[in-house]
Design a protein around this nucleic acid. Structure first.
Length: 927
RNA sequence: GGGCGCAUAGCUCAGUUGGUUAGAGCGCUACAUUCACAUUGUAGAAGUCGUAGGUUCGAGUCCUAUUGCGCCCACCA
């Protein structure tokens, strides 16, 4: 028999098994007609990503689901891949070429993209390798990247389809602009954060001063005043009623602007007069449209003021603010400054304060897409877990805004938008870019097409160029659940492109066969089963996938969405590089092992609650792995032969099993039922904790200790081995490596892997409540005796005598078979079990339920302790009896509570009274 | 301004549909090392379940209000 080391060493087994599983193709998910599919597409991590605890938690949960369903007989598929992460990746590569003294502008678009691909080839697989360390059962042969050629086809197809449906339009609107990344962002990419700022009160002189010389406006961004084209007041505001329609002279630039009336102005805020800067504020844009105001763009794309800012040209927007304030002060036009809390959008990639910026961008009209997506969730076709996220989803969807999808960066899917220089550019002007639906009906030189158009459909010109912008990364991610299956063309371009040796005909046939296969693949695995992700990306990703799925596949993309919490540090802060509070999963794996990492993470993740993590947490997982290891070691060391993992159902039928074996088998199945139930309801931590306490506290602490003397009994040996083997299968989704390692050592079936077994089937017939109750009593007697030994200070190694008195003959018969177990675990050299206790002095007695447990004492003994115990118990019992009595005397309780409950309570009272009598008898004997 | 989450043992948290005496891990106290495991075992101490009302025969659990902490959404300049 192979020796097991005294301690479990994850390093020796993890890589070995992962390679084996992969080599054997166990992770491969191919359609299988006899099996139900269970599929998960993993949230593709950014190619620039490095593994953090969030990934570790996310992947662990998914892998548990996959391995669990795999064992339960589903054809499972965990599809991996990475996201090209437009802005993030571009930033990383820009930084790397900056070290060579280069900028992307210097090297040009083509060269830059080439470098990004090179970077991707070199570093893009880092995250993939790291994911493998987590033991995830991804089908790596299906790994996808959102910039794969085939994937790009899907993106283009979707763009064109939405365009043709009139759901994509180009518009000149105020959008979120990041002056550092120099691109537009969607609303979701510009989260608002609180800032401590100031509210500046600025005097705007009236053109024709009367009683009033000035109108004072309050603003948080004084630099934008140079772009003001009106000041608005509320028409109901008595203070300003007579000023409406009058003109003001804009300080510092002398331009004249009108005072207008608008109901949206809050009279309570500031002075009740609002400067209107339509090109640099979302509200003002709307007001500007409404009142037909002029739009003045004040800034260069990098956040410096432009020529429209006059003297402040070329100054950074914040520097300009300082100087403008200084100049206003000098001219006596700055009335006052108040501290003011405000919130401003920040770039989610570089955290720069975004600038509301007027420029032409491309948008998706979302409301029509949202409608069916709302319905699907309301009808329960897609369920969120925990359920509360449903509301968050619906609230966002019901107030959905159009999605700005164009980005002024280079890395990403280029818009499939082309312009005829002749037809388009001639009518180009900044303002006329606002294209209404009706305007688009007549051709304006814009060609939206998957392919580069050969000529302009109107004028036939070949002078055509492509739009410079690329699409928002999420415009590709939202197709992930089906684009990863080679939708819509079902062709693998990389494969079809080569193979010069085969004939055209042959290749055609091959391609059509492959395409058929890919189509079947999608049909089999889509809709996917469960999406596991973090709540932060409900809007970015989850909601949009639902919309895309319904729009393009006419089916939901997944049935269940499980949202897990955010991993935080012990203080509750988000883990981040800049805070330096990161716990690196790879270091944890190195130190404690992957199984420990997975188990610890799962066991502390209550349904969607955030996880507060400290390194010590992982000790629990490591210790548990070691416990499993050592219990197995014990079983393996003691067994006479390999391969004795019997079928429990069959074995129980053919053999009359002892109560202890029936008990443990019963406990196992009750554990199984619980775990299954928990997993089916996304209660991963409950499942983990059930498995933990069953194994450690029931199987090891009690069962193995109890059976030690009879370890070589053939029936016990068979049951023990079978239970361990089946337990390993339950444990496998949580701790894949150690369970495989031990399972192999058990030599259950030569040449097979634990991954090729089945999840044990529930056996209701093997649940044995009687055996459970009896064994529980046995254990309680042992615990009571151990406790009594400590109270009378018997040394741990000493053997003593004890007596047990049952209340009646039938309980006596139940207790008698336990004599050996009790003697052994309570360290007794002599135990008598009899009926009907008679109080005596000189003995230490404890009452357990109706059973007297007695340790005879010899010599001079201090009985004060025992007397104290008795008194304490009597006191407690009396108060409990009083409560129970008043409860049962309450007519409402007796009348309204269910009969079972009332009867149970009556029974309890009887027992308590009985108990009280007996304790008083013991006390009397002490005197 | 709207919405959500959390408050339970010294610490970190479980507690599914209201029904025995509210649980775990860590920590703490005492004891134990020729025993599968000291990454261990045995026993123990420790909680008026944030506060105030309400519903109910019965509330940690349901309702209302309130306090504190955290998060999300929203155009208050």
């Amino acid at each position: 028999m192979e020796e097991l080391a005294k301690q479990y060493s994850p390093k020796d087994v993890e890589d070995k098994w992962y390679k084996y599983w992969q080599d054997q193709g166990f992770f491969k998910g191919s359609p299988c007609s006899g099996k139900k599919p269970y599929s998960i597409v993993i949230p593709p991590p950014n190619v620039t990503g490095i593994l953090h605890m969030g990934h570790a938690l996310n992947e662990s949960i998914q892998d548990i689901l996959i391995r669990y369903h795999h064992l339960r007989g589903f054809q499972s598929l965990m599809l991996p891949g990475t996201d090209h992460a437009g802005i993030a990746t571009q930033n990383v590569v820009e930084k790397s070429i900056a070290k060579l003294g280069l900028t992307r502008q210097k090297i040009g678009r083509a060269e830059f993209i080439k470098r990004v691909w090179l970077w991707k080839e070199e570093y893009g697989s880092t995250i993939v390798h790291q994911l493998k360390k987590l033991g995830v059962s991804c089908d790596w042969s299906r790994e996808r990247f959102t910039m794969d050629d085939e994937y790009s086809e899907a993106v283009k197809t979707v763009f064109v389809a939405l365009w043709e449906k009139g759901l994509i339009y180009q518009g000149n609107k105020v959008i979120n602009w990041c002056p550092r990344c120099q691109t537009a962002l969607s609303d979701e990419e510009a989260p608002h954060n609180e800032l401590q700022g100031s509210l500046y009160y600025i005097k705007y002189p009236l053109k024709e001063p009367a009683e009033e010389k000035y109108l004072v406006v309050a603003t948080t961004r004084p630099e934008t005043m140079l772009g003001d084209t009106a000041v608005a007041v509320n028409p109901k505001d008595k203070r300003y009623k007579n000023l409406i329609g009058k003109s003001l002279v804009l300080p510092l630039c002398g331009r004249q602007i009108k005072i207008i009336a608008d109901h949206s102005v809050d009279m309570q805020f500031g002075t009740g007069a609002v400067k209107i800067t339509p090109a640099h504020d979302f509200n003002d844009y709307i007001t500007g449209k409404k009142h037909n105001l002029e739009f003045i763009n004040l800034m260069h794309p990098d956040g410096r003021m432009n020529e429209n800012a006059g003297n402040y040209n070329n100054l950074d927007r914040f520097k300009a603010r300082e100087i403008i304030l200084h100049d206003l002060q000098e001219q006596g036009l700055l009335e006052k400054i108040e501290p003011h809390q405000l919130s401003a959008g920040h770039c989610y990639r570089c955290h720069t304060i975004i600038e509301p910026y007027l420029c032409p961008q491309w948008f998706v009209k979302m409301a029509p897409l949202a409608k069916p997506a709302i319905k699907a969730v309301k009808q329960g076709k897609i369920k969120f877990h925990p359920e509360r996220w449903t509301k968050v989803y619906l609230n966002w969807m019901e107030n959905i805004q159009d999605w700005c999808i164009s980005r002024q960066i280079w890395w990403g899917h280029r818009l499939p938008v082309y312009y005829c220089r002749k037809c388009h550019d001639s009518q180009l002007s900044a303002v006329s870019l606002q294209l209404s639906a009706s305007a688009r009906k007549s051709f304006n030189g814009i060609i939206v097409s998957k392919e580069f158009p050969k000529k302009c459909p109107k004028c036939g010109s070949t002078d055509i160029y492509q739009d410079e912008d690329v699409l928002d990364t999420w415009f590709s991610s939202w197709l992930w659940p089906f684009a990863t299956f080679y939708w819509p063309n079902f062709l693998r371009l990389a494969v079809s492109g080569q193979r010069p040796t085969v004939s055209d005909q042959q290749r055609k046939e091959e391609l059509s066969a492959e395409s058929k296969k890919l189509k079947a693949d999608l049909k089999y695995f889509y809709p996917t089963s469960t999406l596991v992700t973090a709540p932060e990306i409900i809007f970015f990703w989850v909601a949009r996938m639902i919309m895309a799925g319904l729009e393009f596949m006419h089916q939901i993309p997944f049935k269940d969405v499980y949202l897990h919490g955010t991993v935080r540090d012990a203080e509750g802060k988000k883990m981040s590089k800049s805070l330096g509070n990161i716990i690196d999963p790879l270091k944890i794996i190195e130190e404690y092992g992957t199984d420990a990492l997975r188990f610890s993470l799962i066991s502390i993740t209550a349904q969607g609650q955030d996880v507060f993590l400290s390194k010590e947490r992982f000790e629990q997982g490591r210790n548990f792995a070691n416990k499993i290891w050592n219990a197995s070691r014990f079983i393996l060391l003691n067994r006479k032969r390999a391969g004795i993992c019997v079928d429990l159902v069959d074995f129980a039928k053919k053999n009359k099993l002892s109560v202890i074996n029936r008990w443990m088998i019963s406990r196992f199945y009750s554990c199984l039922e619980q775990v299954q139930n928990d997993l089916d309801n996304f209660r991963f931590n409950e499942a983990a904790n059930t498995l933990y306490s069953f194994f450690w506290h029931e199987f090891c602490d009690w069962y193995l200790e109890l059976i030690k003397p009879e370890i070589n009994d053939p029936a016990t040996e068979a049951v023990t081995n079978a239970l361990l083997e089946q337990y390993l299968r339950l444990m496998h989704p949580f701790m894949p490596f150690i369970t495989e390692e031990i399972w192999q050592k058990l030599q259950v079936a030569q040449g097979l892997s634990i991954m090729q077994t089945d999840w044990p089937r529930m056996q209701k017939k093997l649940l044995d409540i009687a055996a459970e109750n009896q064994m529980q009593l046995c254990c309680e007697i042992i615990t009571t005796l151990r406790n009594m030994r400590q109270e009378i200070e018997v040394a741990a190694q000493d053997l003593i005598s004890a007596k047990i008195f049952a209340p009646d003959e039938s309980s006596l018969r139940v207790l008698e078979p336990f004599s050996g177990y009790i003697k052994n675990l309570a360290r007794l050299d002599n135990l008598s079990i009899a009926c009907q206790y008679q109080p005596k002095s000189c003995e230490y007695v404890t009452l357990l339920k109706q059973i007297h447990i007695v340790i005879p004492l010899s010599g001079v003994v201090d009985l004060k302790q025992q007397l104290d115990n008795c008194n304490q118990k009597i006191l407690k019992l009396n108060s409990e009896i009083k409560n129970k009595r008043s409860m049962l005397e309450n007519k409402d309780f007796v009348g309204r509570a269910p009969k079972e409950i009332v009867n149970a309570e009556r029974g309890k009272l009887t027992q308590m009274l009985n108990q009280l009598k007996k304790i008083e008898a013991i006390k009397d004997a002490l005197r």
